[in-house]
Each structure stands twice: as C-alpha cells, then as structure tokens.
Design a protein around this nucleic acid. Structure first.
Lengths: 251, 251
DNA sequence: CTGCGGCCTGACGTCGCGTCAGGGTCAAGA
DNA sequence: TCTTGACCCTGACGCGACGTCAGGCCGCAG
C-alpha cells in the first residue's frame, strides 16, 4: 500500500506519515525500486496503535518506546488503551455535567464558585487552594455580580425563559401543597414539561440527563435553597418527580 | 487574583497565562502599580471558556474570535460547548467499543478488516476507498496472517484463555441443544461466567459493556459465524443470554 | 515523448507553550 | 533598616508535531 492510500484510510496527511518515518516511529516495511514507501498490514496495525496513543495525548517519542517495548504484548496495549479511553470517557462526562450545571445555575440566577467551575480541569490538587482562593473576594460577592453580567442573555429572552420556568415551579409548589404524590402521573407530567422547557431554551436534555439534574437538586445546597425558598420540601419533591419521570420515559 | 493563584486554580502554568496575555486571548483586566497582572472574576470566566475550547481542539486564534464575537451571548457558548462535548463523548465511546471488538475478535481468532479498524478515526469520507482498499490484498488474507502474528500473546497464556472460553462455549451449546431457554437462570449464569472470564483475561467488563458485546454477536457476521460454526442458532442464543444477564445484574 | 499526477527529499514556517536569563517587588524576620 | 526568599516581570531561545513550499524523479496515458 502506498502513502496516499494509507493516509486516506487512517485519516492523516501524507506529511504525517513522512514525519513518522523520519523519526523512526513508523517505518514502512518496504520500498519499491524507485524508493516509494510500501506499507504492509503489520505497518497498518502499528499505525493504528500510534494514532490511538496520539489521540490520548502521548508525545510521539513515548508512543515509540511503548510500542517498541518487547516485553509488552499487544493484548497489553489493548488493555491499556481501553483503560485510558474509559478514563477519558469519565472525564468528558464530568465536563458535560459541569456545563449542564452551569446552565441550570444560570437559569435559576445562581452563580457557582470559581473552584466548582474549574474543578473539572487540572487534576485537582485537593484543598491547598480551596480556602486560600475562597477568601480572595468576600464570599464570592464580586464573583456573583460578574457572573450576572457576563452570563446575561438579551433581557427579553431571559425574562421569557424565567417566566416559563417560574410557571412550572409554581405549579410544582401547588401540587406539593395539595398533597399530590411526587411520583404521581400529574407530578411526572410537570417534570416532563420541565425537561422539554430545558430542551427548548438551553440544550437537548434527554431523560437520563434530566435525572442527573434531579439528583443535583437535592445534592447541591445552592440548588436546594432555590427550591426551598419557593416552598419547603419542594427540592426533594421536584427531584423525585423528575427521576420518576425519567424512568417512566426510559421504559 | 495573581497569576500564580489563577494558574493553580485552573490547572495551567503561569507561562500559559503569560502567553494568553501576549497574544491577546486573555488580558487581565488590571495591573498593580508594580505591573503585576490582576485577574478579575470575569477574567476567570473567560479563562474557563478558553480552556474548554482548547480542550476540544480549537486553535487559540479561533477561540479568540469565538469569544470576541459580540453577537454570541454566553448561553450560546455553553450550548455549543455542550454539543461539542457530547460529540466527543460519542466519538470516545465508539473508540472504546472498537477496542473491545478488537479484543473479542482476538479472543476468537478472528481478524478485522483494516477499514473496520480505522473506521473510528478520520471523519470517515464514506465509500470512496472502501472498494479501492479492499482489493489491495486479496480478501485480506495477508492482513489476517499479519494479525495472527502481531496479536500473539505468549502461547501458554493464549492456550489457557482459549481453553477457558471453549469450555463456556461448549456449555452454551449443550444448554441450547437440551432446550434450556436463553433467558433462563442457567443460561444467564453461563453468560455471567462468560463476562467474568473476559474481565479476568482481558479488560474490566461491566454488565452494560457485556450487553454491547452480546449485540455484536448477532450484528457482525464474523462473530455470528464463529458461534454458528459451533452450533447453529448459538450466536442468537448467546446474545440473548448475555443481554438477559445484563439486565438481571443491572436491576 | 510528453504531459500530468504522485512520489521523493530537504528546508523553512507555525503553534503552543517550556525553559532559562536578567532584573524588579514585597512581606517577614534579623 | 537591611536582607532574604518567594513571587512577579519581560525578552529570547527551544521544541514537538507537523504544514507548506521548492526542486526533482517515477510511471503510465495519450
């Protein structure tokens, strides 16, 4: 197989293959009489591993030492790649969750602390700064104001969205007050409306993601406080309704 | 907030912040009399977005144009980040699945085609090469041989693993022959044994991942063929048992 | 035998920082 | 008050992983 074909197959440029050849990371196992690179199946296998490790952020030199280590059999590589990929999956989900939390916070007019927002980055050296940074601005007042400004949509939009969500919140509170069970049809219908509202106004929110939000309402005190201020017990109520609805939709 | 603190909080180096300042991507909103950089809450918000977009692979210059676009409100950014992150999640899961498929193929002595293996890379320009590359080596015979060699564990290990899996396969076949239902206790127990075997010999395979493999047994003809050669109907049988077991473990 | 596309090998450019070098700043302690 | 040590600044050079020409050799189609 010639460079062009290999490049197309693997989704890289010819230049990249030249580079890998030069630095000895992937030398084609043959050349034609004219000096054209010839890649064998085994070369493709190696390229595949190279690209995987590269995607995972390894510097090429380290990839070379990994692949050239004679004590590491191929299954070992697959195992490692699998582990690394799953780590990445976890990290990415955490980032997705963080963005969702941020949106939800925005919708409720809550602002997150800087620590929370950056939590997902940098392999978090625990404590150490937590206190230090916290006191930098008195209880994040300045921060909150900054958030308010920097996160503003056009005022009209925000008012509309706010009115919509206030409406659902009020109906949730009414349901709670009149003794409707949190896992009843009626409450779940409200939850479903809540979910669709998010999907319309923010991001596409499936039942599973919605359930995650529901959990957050009781696990994060700021979100809990938001609902408790409307009516005591409402946080738990909404959370339950949302999760019940999620399993209903899921089945 | 001073550089050091911001850097620690965000998990980047001071040099990085210097760089972002120089290129105008993130200029601290203030300086002390001595010229020390002072980062405001709003600066941190911007930094957060910068890091997210960077993580997603955007060149810094593009990040700057994105963030400086006055027509894009912050919610729009969150929306976009959310979308991009979910894309990445999908892509990563695909890669995880690919690695699992590769391992399973290896365990069964099957070898995948080059197209399949690279499928997950390079935003796959459909067809175009499919046929072209396919005929490069007659029906991937050379490829198969290469695979056989390059994927060899130490012979002893592989024989042990092979014997184990043959044993379970045989007991599955026996169960099928004697009319045991695929979603019965007994068949599910076999499936569970199958799952634990994979976990021991290859990678940590949870019920959900195992269910994915089960689906593959009937969706991919090469895996189907593997089981059908042992006993007709076995592919569907194992697939069903595995998925039944997954829901049993999950609940 | 003449294009024309594909291959080759330098060689220089670029991006996103890492890593000194040389020098000011600032709170704490001797 | 002076020193010390931690932290800040601005160049400036280096590096990894290629992108992008430039100049020249294959190979097959017409």
């Amino acid at each position: 197989m010639f460079v062009r074909e290999v490049a197309a197959l693997a989704g890289v440029t010819v230049r990249t293959l030249h580079h890998y050849d030069r630095i000895g990371l992937l030398q084609p196992s043959g050349r034609t009489a004219a000096g054209y690179r010839q890649y064998s199946p085994a070369d493709l296998t190696r390229l595949h591993s190279v690209l995987l490790y590269r995607e995972l952020g390894f510097p090429l030199e380290e990839v070379a030492t990994l692949l050239d280590d004679p004590s590491a059999d191929p299954v070992e590589h697959l195992r490692r790649q699998h582990r690394l990929l799953r780590d990445r999956l976890e990290r990415t989900s955490a980032m997705v969750a963080a963005v969702e939390k941020e949106m939800e916070a925005h919708a409720m007019g809550i602002s997150l602390t800087p620590e929370e927002r950056f939590e997902v980055f940098g392999d978090w050296l625990p404590e150490e700064y937590a206190a230090e940074a916290e006191e930098k601005w008195g209880e994040t007042e300045a921060w909150a104001h900054s958030q308010q400004r920097t996160l503003a949509m056009t005022k009209d939009d925000w008012l509309r969205v706010k009115a919509e969500s206030d409406d659902v919140d009020a109906r949730f509170a009414e349901a709670l007050r009149s003794g409707v069970a949190a896992d009843s049809e009626q409450a779940m219908d409200l939850a479903e409306e809540h979910r669709q509202q998010i999907s319309r106004n923010f991001y596409d929110c499936g039942p599973e993601m919605h359930a995650g939000l529901g959990r957050m309402y009781v696990e994060d005190e700021r979100f809990t406080a938001y609902y408790e201020r409307i009516a005591p017990g409402l946080a738990q109520y909404v959370s339950t309704a949302v999760q019940a609805n999620a399993t209903r939709q899921g089945s």
